[in-house]
């Protein structure tokens, strides 16, 4: 599979502080790729560096297989991007704002304006000034602006920010539709749930470093197994399980439910056996894997502890 973004040792420093610190990133073509990290982790700086909005301190970047900045114009001609929040000339209409950006792209971009407005559902408001648009409409106009390039790669920085649930659902649908068309979507987010629902692969970034990268399902599966136990007497169950060193964490979820995090060598059957032997009635036993969110939190908090 071809790669659309490839970085080697990419670093961007502001003074002594490295906002992006030796990042090696490989984004395959034709997927939705999530760039996940807490606020201030360096997500936006990485995107700005990839797009040539700011110069890297060191390292190599290739976009769509083209080395940057040597082949910058050629690569960016097929890239659409929203960096931070989408901004526009507020005194111009939505359509006029697209005309401005289309003028900086190839001639075919002019002809795409009606089509992209239709695609994001803004045709009926396209002749209104942007200053009258809601945040959700601006996000959609930002997507329309990206589509003027007929992009092979879309880079979206926190595209769900400020959207209501319906807007988030619509954005997720749009992103998946882009992937279905063969485009690659690279999106940064601190919303784990959204990345998990939207993306095929993810890189988790913290303190400017990519700490793990891979398919969402694989990363989520790296989390420790948990088991939800429903019993008649949660206090008695807690007392019984308290002596088991391979249970790393016990959390009460209501009066009769416990969520247990299991260590190596311990399964849900062992938990059931121990409880029944101690006379605790088990009415439900539900094994589960940690979500991406739990994996993310465990990785980022571990890094925090390392420092």
């Amino acid at each position: 599979m071809a790669t659309v973004i490839e970085t080697r040792g990419l670093t961007k420093k502001f003074g002594e502080r490295a906002a992006v610190d030796g990042v090696d990133l490989t984004v395959p073509a034709g997927i939705a790729f999530g760039f996940l990290g807490p606020n201030g982790a360096g997500k936006t700086t990485l995107i700005r560096t990839l797009l040539g909005l700011t110069k890297p301190t060191s390292g190599e970047v290739a976009l769509l297989g083209l080395p940057q900045p040597q082949k910058r114009s050629e690569a960016l001609a097929r890239v659409g991007a929203i960096v931070e929040e989408p901004r526009f000339h507020p005194h111009l209409t939505g359509r006029e704002n697209l005309v401005i950006v289309a003028a900086a792209r190839d001639r075919a971009a002019d002809g795409r304006i009606p089509e992209v407005l239709e695609r994001v559902g803004l045709t009926h408001r396209s002749n209104d000034r942007v200053k009258t648009y809601s945040l959700g409409m601006r996000q959609r106009l930002g997507i329309a602006r990206c589509l003027l390039a007929d992009p092979a790669l879309l880079m979206l920085d926190e595209p769900m920010n400020g959207l209501d649930p319906a807007g988030i659902l619509e954005m997720r649908r749009l992103i998946r539709a882009f992937v279905d068309e063969g485009r690659t979507v690279f999106l940064s987010s601190h919303l784990l749930d959204e990345v998990e629902k939207t993306c095929d692969q993810v890189a988790i970034v913290d303190h400017g470093r990519v700490v793990v990268q891979g398919p969402v399902a694989e990363l989520a599966a790296q989390g420790k197994p948990t088991v939800l136990v429903e019993v008649d007497d949660a206090a008695a169950a807690r007392a019984v399980l308290g002596g088991e060193p391979r249970i790393t964490h016990v959390e009460e979820e209501g009066a009769s439910k416990l969520r247990l995090t299991l260590g190596d060598g311990l399964g849900s059957a062992d938990v059931n056996r121990a409880l029944v032997a101690a006379g605790v009635a088990v009415s439900r036993l539900e094994p589960a894997r940690a979500t991406l969110e739990e994996t993310f939190l465990s990785i980022t908090s571990r890094l925090g502890e390392d420092e």
């Binding site: 040539g52 909005l53 910058r72 960016l76 001609a77 000339h89 950006v101 602006r145």
Partner: peptide, 10 residues
């Protein structure tokens, strides 16, 4: 809007 013009590759 300048950054959006820059990312067109111009």
């Amino acid at each position: 809007v300048f950054r959006d013009l820059v990312v067109t590759g111009r």
